[in-house]
Design a protein around this nucleic acid. Structure first.
Lengths: 137, 137
DNA sequence: CTTGACCTTGGTGTTAACTCTAAGGTTTAT
DNA sequence: ATAAACCTTAGAGTTAACACCAAGGTCAAG
Protein backbone atom coordinates (compact mmCIF):
# COMPACT_ATOMS: atom_id res chain seq x y z
CA UNK A 1 0.00 0.00 0.00
CA UNK A 2 1.26 3.43 -0.90
CA UNK A 3 0.59 6.59 1.04
CA UNK A 4 -2.17 7.81 -1.24
CA UNK A 5 -4.09 4.59 -1.03
CA UNK A 6 -3.82 4.42 2.72
CA UNK A 7 -4.86 8.06 3.02
CA UNK A 8 -7.86 7.49 0.84
CA UNK A 9 -9.03 4.41 2.65
CA UNK A 10 -8.86 6.28 5.93
CA UNK A 11 -10.26 9.56 4.74
CA UNK A 12 -7.22 11.57 5.76
CA UNK A 13 -4.63 13.49 3.77
CA UNK A 14 -1.19 12.27 2.83
CA UNK A 15 0.08 15.29 4.72
CA UNK A 16 -1.48 13.95 7.85
CA UNK A 17 0.20 10.60 7.40
CA UNK A 18 3.59 12.21 6.94
CA UNK A 19 2.86 14.42 9.92
CA UNK A 20 2.08 11.39 12.04
CA UNK A 21 5.27 9.77 10.87
CA UNK A 22 7.26 12.80 11.95
CA UNK A 23 5.54 12.70 15.28
CA UNK A 24 6.20 9.04 15.86
CA UNK A 25 2.65 7.85 15.64
CA UNK A 26 2.86 5.76 12.52
CA UNK A 27 5.92 4.51 10.71
CA UNK A 28 5.56 2.87 7.32
CA UNK A 29 6.65 -0.74 7.45
CA UNK A 30 9.17 -0.16 4.68
CA UNK A 31 10.23 1.88 1.69
CA UNK A 32 10.02 0.69 -1.89
CA UNK A 33 13.11 0.70 -4.11
CA UNK A 34 12.08 4.09 -5.35
CA UNK A 35 11.72 5.44 -1.83
CA UNK A 36 7.94 5.27 -1.60
CA UNK A 37 6.42 4.63 1.80
CA UNK A 38 4.98 1.16 2.04
CA UNK A 39 2.17 0.42 4.46
CA UNK A 40 0.59 -2.88 5.42
CA UNK A 41 -2.64 -3.92 7.12
CA UNK A 42 -0.83 -3.43 10.40
CA UNK A 43 -0.47 0.26 9.74
CA UNK A 44 -4.02 0.53 8.54
CA UNK A 45 -5.25 -0.91 11.81
CA UNK A 46 -2.89 1.27 13.78
CA UNK A 47 -4.25 4.33 12.05
CA UNK A 48 -7.80 3.24 12.72
CA UNK A 49 -6.83 2.92 16.35
CA UNK A 50 -5.28 6.40 16.33
CA UNK A 51 -8.29 7.98 14.68
CA UNK A 52 -10.72 6.33 17.06
CA UNK A 53 -8.63 7.44 19.99
CA UNK A 54 -8.65 10.98 18.69
CA UNK A 55 -12.38 10.97 18.22
CA UNK A 56 -12.99 10.15 21.82
CA UNK A 57 -10.88 13.04 22.95
CA UNK A 58 -7.34 11.73 23.28
CA UNK A 59 -4.63 14.11 22.17
CA UNK A 60 -1.95 12.83 19.84
CA UNK A 61 0.41 12.87 22.76
CA UNK A 62 -1.88 10.63 24.74
CA UNK A 63 -2.28 8.34 21.77
CA UNK A 64 1.48 8.15 21.59
CA UNK A 65 1.60 7.07 25.18
CA UNK A 66 -0.88 4.35 24.42
CA UNK A 67 1.14 3.22 21.46
CA UNK A 68 4.34 3.37 23.42
CA UNK A 69 3.01 0.59 25.53
CA UNK A 70 3.72 -1.39 22.41
CA UNK A 71 6.76 0.35 21.12
CA UNK A 72 8.65 0.03 24.36
CA UNK A 73 7.59 -3.47 25.10
CA UNK A 74 11.10 -4.78 24.63
CA UNK A 75 12.57 -2.43 27.15
CA UNK A 76 9.94 -2.79 29.78
CA UNK A 77 8.74 -5.50 32.02
CA UNK A 78 5.29 -6.92 31.92
CA UNK A 79 4.76 -5.33 35.28
CA UNK A 80 5.41 -1.84 34.00
CA UNK A 81 3.26 -2.32 30.96
CA UNK A 82 0.46 -3.57 33.14
CA UNK A 83 0.67 -0.53 35.36
CA UNK A 84 0.55 1.94 32.51
CA UNK A 85 -2.34 0.07 31.02
CA UNK A 86 -4.33 0.06 34.22
CA UNK A 87 -3.69 3.74 34.64
CA UNK A 88 -5.03 4.49 31.16
CA UNK A 89 -7.93 2.19 31.84
CA UNK A 90 -8.97 4.35 34.77
CA UNK A 91 -8.87 7.41 32.57
CA UNK A 92 -11.06 5.77 29.97
CA UNK A 93 -13.53 4.62 32.58
CA UNK A 94 -13.80 8.06 34.09
CA UNK A 95 -14.46 9.47 30.67
CA UNK A 96 -17.13 6.89 30.02
CA UNK A 97 -18.84 7.77 33.27
CA UNK A 98 -18.88 11.44 32.41
CA UNK A 99 -20.31 10.74 29.01
CA UNK A 100 -22.95 8.60 30.61
CA UNK A 101 -23.96 11.53 32.76
CA UNK A 102 -24.37 13.54 29.59
CA UNK A 103 -26.38 10.80 28.07
CA UNK A 104 -28.68 10.80 31.06
CA UNK A 105 -29.17 14.54 30.94
CA UNK A 106 -29.89 14.48 27.26
CA UNK A 107 -32.23 11.55 27.34
CA UNK A 108 -34.03 13.04 30.31
CA UNK A 109 -34.51 16.17 28.25
CA UNK A 110 -35.68 14.23 25.23
CA UNK A 111 -38.17 12.27 27.29
CA UNK A 112 -39.52 15.29 29.01
CA UNK A 113 -39.83 17.24 25.84
CA UNK A 114 -43.26 16.53 24.54
CA UNK A 115 -42.05 17.10 21.01
CA UNK A 116 -45.10 19.10 20.11
CA UNK A 117 -45.35 22.38 18.24
CA UNK A 118 -45.49 24.47 21.43
CA UNK A 119 -42.71 26.79 22.54
CA UNK A 120 -39.98 24.93 24.31
CA UNK A 121 -39.76 27.36 27.19
CA UNK A 122 -39.28 24.79 29.84
CA UNK A 123 -37.13 22.43 27.86
CA UNK A 124 -33.42 22.78 28.29
CA UNK A 125 -30.43 20.73 29.08
CA UNK A 126 -29.69 22.85 32.06
CA UNK A 127 -33.07 22.49 33.66
CA UNK A 128 -32.87 18.81 32.89
CA UNK A 129 -29.58 18.73 34.71
CA UNK A 130 -30.71 20.66 37.68
CA UNK A 131 -34.27 20.29 38.62
CA UNK A 132 -35.85 16.92 38.41
CA UNK A 133 -39.38 18.22 38.46
CA UNK A 134 -39.34 20.34 35.34
CA UNK A 135 -41.81 19.41 32.69
CA UNK A 136 -42.19 20.51 29.16
CA UNK A 137 -44.63 23.37 29.20
CA UNK B 1 -20.50 36.47 42.85
CA UNK B 2 -17.77 38.42 41.12
CA UNK B 3 -15.60 37.11 38.34
CA UNK B 4 -12.62 36.35 40.53
CA UNK B 5 -14.64 34.32 42.96
CA UNK B 6 -16.30 32.31 40.23
CA UNK B 7 -12.97 31.73 38.54
CA UNK B 8 -11.40 30.54 41.76
CA UNK B 9 -14.21 28.18 42.64
CA UNK B 10 -13.95 26.61 39.19
CA UNK B 11 -10.21 26.57 38.90
CA UNK B 12 -10.14 28.64 35.74
CA UNK B 13 -8.81 32.10 34.99
CA UNK B 14 -10.83 35.28 34.77
CA UNK B 15 -9.51 35.52 31.24
CA UNK B 16 -11.21 32.29 30.42
CA UNK B 17 -14.51 33.52 31.79
CA UNK B 18 -14.34 36.69 29.74
CA UNK B 19 -13.32 34.63 26.75
CA UNK B 20 -16.34 32.41 27.19
CA UNK B 21 -18.52 35.47 27.48
CA UNK B 22 -17.18 36.80 24.20
CA UNK B 23 -17.84 33.46 22.62
CA UNK B 24 -21.40 33.24 23.89
CA UNK B 25 -20.89 30.37 26.26
CA UNK B 26 -21.54 32.11 29.53
CA UNK B 27 -23.12 35.47 30.14
CA UNK B 28 -23.06 36.97 33.62
CA UNK B 29 -26.55 37.35 34.99
CA UNK B 30 -26.03 41.07 35.49
CA UNK B 31 -23.64 43.91 36.07
CA UNK B 32 -23.22 45.70 39.36
CA UNK B 33 -23.60 49.48 39.52
CA UNK B 34 -19.88 49.77 39.08
CA UNK B 35 -19.97 47.56 36.01
CA UNK B 36 -18.68 44.39 37.64
CA UNK B 37 -19.86 41.10 36.22
CA UNK B 38 -22.26 39.41 38.56
CA UNK B 39 -22.69 35.65 38.49
CA UNK B 40 -25.16 33.43 40.27
CA UNK B 41 -25.39 29.74 41.07
CA UNK B 42 -26.95 29.30 37.64
CA UNK B 43 -23.75 30.42 35.97
CA UNK B 44 -21.67 28.29 38.26
CA UNK B 45 -23.62 25.23 37.24
CA UNK B 46 -23.50 26.23 33.61
CA UNK B 47 -19.74 26.49 33.80
CA UNK B 48 -19.50 23.11 35.46
CA UNK B 49 -21.53 21.75 32.60
CA UNK B 50 -19.24 23.41 30.07
CA UNK B 51 -16.11 22.13 31.74
CA UNK B 52 -17.41 18.60 31.95
CA UNK B 53 -18.43 18.70 28.33
CA UNK B 54 -14.98 19.87 27.38
CA UNK B 55 -13.33 17.10 29.35
CA UNK B 56 -15.15 14.45 27.43
CA UNK B 57 -13.99 15.86 24.16
CA UNK B 58 -16.61 18.36 23.07
CA UNK B 59 -15.27 21.47 21.42
CA UNK B 60 -16.49 24.84 22.62
CA UNK B 61 -18.51 25.05 19.46
CA UNK B 62 -20.24 21.79 20.22
CA UNK B 63 -20.86 22.92 23.78
CA UNK B 64 -22.43 26.04 22.38
CA UNK B 65 -24.77 23.95 20.32
CA UNK B 66 -25.75 22.05 23.41
CA UNK B 67 -26.36 25.26 25.30
CA UNK B 68 -28.28 26.75 22.44
CA UNK B 69 -30.89 24.16 23.05
CA UNK B 70 -31.56 26.26 26.10
CA UNK B 71 -30.83 29.68 24.78
CA UNK B 72 -33.16 29.37 21.86
CA UNK B 73 -35.94 27.68 23.69
CA UNK B 74 -38.20 30.67 23.32
CA UNK B 75 -37.84 30.79 19.59
CA UNK B 76 -38.16 27.12 18.94
CA UNK B 77 -40.80 24.56 19.27
CA UNK B 78 -40.61 21.58 21.51
CA UNK B 79 -40.36 19.50 18.41
CA UNK B 80 -37.25 21.20 17.19
CA UNK B 81 -35.61 21.07 20.57
CA UNK B 82 -36.38 17.41 20.80
CA UNK B 83 -34.81 16.74 17.46
CA UNK B 84 -31.60 18.53 18.25
CA UNK B 85 -31.44 16.74 21.54
CA UNK B 86 -31.90 13.34 20.02
CA UNK B 87 -29.27 14.11 17.47
CA UNK B 88 -26.77 15.04 20.16
CA UNK B 89 -27.77 11.99 22.09
CA UNK B 90 -26.71 9.81 19.21
CA UNK B 91 -23.36 11.53 19.14
CA UNK B 92 -22.83 10.94 22.82
CA UNK B 93 -23.82 7.31 22.53
CA UNK B 94 -21.46 6.73 19.66
CA UNK B 95 -18.69 8.25 21.68
CA UNK B 96 -19.51 6.05 24.64
CA UNK B 97 -19.40 2.99 22.44
CA UNK B 98 -16.02 3.94 21.10
CA UNK B 99 -14.69 4.48 24.55
CA UNK B 100 -16.05 1.13 25.58
CA UNK B 101 -14.11 -0.49 22.79
CA UNK B 102 -11.02 1.16 24.18
CA UNK B 103 -11.87 -0.07 27.58
CA UNK B 104 -12.17 -3.58 26.26
CA UNK B 105 -8.85 -3.42 24.48
CA UNK B 106 -7.11 -2.03 27.51
CA UNK B 107 -8.62 -4.42 29.99
CA UNK B 108 -7.91 -7.32 27.68
CA UNK B 109 -4.31 -6.20 27.62
CA UNK B 110 -4.19 -5.80 31.37
CA UNK B 111 -5.64 -9.24 31.91
CA UNK B 112 -3.35 -10.90 29.50
CA UNK B 113 -0.34 -9.17 30.85
CA UNK B 114 0.95 -11.44 33.55
CA UNK B 115 2.39 -8.47 35.39
CA UNK B 116 5.61 -10.26 36.10
CA UNK B 117 9.18 -9.01 35.74
CA UNK B 118 9.65 -10.55 32.30
CA UNK B 119 9.99 -8.58 29.11
CA UNK B 120 6.65 -7.50 27.77
CA UNK B 121 7.39 -8.55 24.22
CA UNK B 122 3.99 -9.93 23.54
CA UNK B 123 1.97 -7.40 25.45
CA UNK B 124 0.63 -4.51 23.49
CA UNK B 125 -2.55 -2.71 22.87
CA UNK B 126 -2.34 -3.46 19.24
CA UNK B 127 -1.95 -7.16 19.60
CA UNK B 128 -4.74 -7.05 22.13
CA UNK B 129 -6.83 -5.30 19.54
CA UNK B 130 -6.02 -7.59 16.72
CA UNK B 131 -5.27 -11.11 17.56
CA UNK B 132 -7.26 -12.82 20.19
CA UNK B 133 -4.75 -15.55 20.74
CA UNK B 134 -1.81 -13.50 21.92
CA UNK B 135 -0.53 -14.30 25.35
CA UNK B 136 1.95 -12.55 27.50
CA UNK B 137 5.26 -14.25 26.92
C1' DC C 1 -5.32 55.98 51.07
C1' DT C 2 -3.29 52.64 49.04
C1' DT C 3 -3.45 48.02 47.42
C1' DG C 4 -5.76 44.68 44.86
C1' DA C 5 -9.67 43.38 42.17
C1' DC C 6 -12.24 44.87 38.66
C1' DC C 7 -13.41 47.36 34.01
C1' DT C 8 -12.30 48.34 28.76
C1' DT C 9 -10.20 47.79 23.98
C1' DG C 10 -6.92 45.82 21.54
C1' DG C 11 -3.05 43.44 20.58
C1' DT C 12 0.68 39.64 20.99
C1' DG C 13 2.09 34.95 22.06
C1' DT C 14 1.33 29.77 22.59
C1' DT C 15 0.30 24.94 21.62
C1' DA C 16 -1.88 21.44 18.96
C1' DA C 17 -2.82 19.47 14.91
C1' DC C 18 -2.81 20.07 10.96
C1' DT C 19 -2.73 22.29 5.82
C1' DC C 20 -0.56 24.31 2.09
C1' DT C 21 3.20 26.05 -0.77
C1' DA C 22 7.58 26.19 -2.78
C1' DA C 23 10.96 24.15 -5.48
C1' DG C 24 13.18 20.66 -7.16
C1' DG C 25 13.30 15.85 -8.45
C1' DT C 26 11.76 10.67 -9.43
C1' DT C 27 8.40 7.11 -10.62
C1' DT C 28 4.42 4.92 -12.42
C1' DA C 29 0.30 4.59 -15.10
C1' DT C 30 -2.08 5.43 -19.48
C1' DA D 1 5.42 11.08 -23.26
C1' DT D 2 2.79 13.30 -20.30
C1' DA D 3 0.10 13.53 -16.20
C1' DA D 4 -0.50 12.03 -11.73
C1' DA D 5 1.46 10.32 -7.70
C1' DC D 6 5.29 10.08 -5.11
C1' DC D 7 9.79 11.92 -2.78
C1' DT D 8 12.58 15.71 0.00
C1' DT D 9 13.44 19.91 3.14
C1' DA D 10 11.76 23.71 4.94
C1' DG D 11 8.81 27.14 6.00
C1' DA D 12 4.24 29.82 6.15
C1' DG D 13 -0.63 29.86 7.33
C1' DT D 14 -4.79 28.26 10.05
C1' DT D 15 -8.03 27.24 13.87
C1' DA D 16 -9.02 26.46 18.63
C1' DA D 17 -8.67 27.77 23.07
C1' DC D 18 -6.73 30.07 25.54
C1' DA D 19 -2.72 33.23 28.30
C1' DC D 20 -0.58 37.43 28.86
C1' DC D 21 0.12 42.34 28.58
C1' DA D 22 -0.53 47.37 28.02
C1' DA D 23 -2.73 51.47 29.14
C1' DG D 24 -5.82 53.92 31.31
C1' DG D 25 -9.39 54.07 34.57
C1' DT D 26 -12.82 52.74 38.60
C1' DC D 27 -14.04 50.47 42.94
C1' DA D 28 -13.78 48.21 47.48
C1' DA D 29 -11.38 46.54 51.64
C1' DG D 30 -8.12 47.13 55.42
Amino acid sequence: MKIGELAKSLGVSTDTLRYYEQHKLLTPSARSESGYRVYTQQQLRQMQFILRAKEVGFSLKEVQELLQIQIEKHQHSCEEVKEITIQKLHLVRTRIEELQRFEQSLSKLAQRCCGGPESADFCSILTALEDVDGTCN
